[in-house]
């Protein structure tokens, strides 16, 4: 095994372990928002480690495409997380008593009082 193979092996197995840990977190955590926090790990770091490990194995030519996939995932994963969190809050899918600080609730209550619709 060459040096590149060793680096690639570490990245591939590390990424797969990250994916497994994220999946276990999605299974074990009690709440939608807590699961959200676990689900973002395989979506960004796990996938990027897998893609970099693959890029080392492939020709230099294909690296640009894999970087494109990684960048795309880094852009879209926070968008979906934010939307899921927002919808979970507004439809009551999460336990609000588990929050330490609830600034959105205060703001929504204030805007309801002044008649503005958020």
């Amino acid at each position: 095994m060459s040096v590149g193979d060793v680096i690639s092996a570490v990245l591939l197995i590390g990424g797969a372990v990250f994916c497994l840990l994220g999946a276990l977190g999605v299974l074990w955590f009690p709440d939608v928002t807590a699961r959200l926090q676990a689900a973002t790990k395989p979506q960004t770091l796990g996938l990027i480690m897998l893609l970099v490990g693959t890029a080392i194995q492939l020709d230099f030519l294909y690296g640009s495409g894999l970087i494109m996939v990684a960048m795309f995932q880094m852009i879209t994963a926070p968008v979906i997380s934010q939307m899921v969190g927002r919808v979970a809050y507004r439809t009551g899918a999460m336990r609000k008593e588990s929050l330490v600080v609830d600034e959105l609730g205060e703001r929504l209550a204030r805007e309801e009082g002044t008649g503005k619709s958020g």
Partner: peptide, 8 residues
């Protein structure tokens, strides 16, 4: 997450 696993 399943889609991400498929991509990986």
């Amino acid at each position: 997450v399943l889609v991400v696993l498929i991509v990986g």
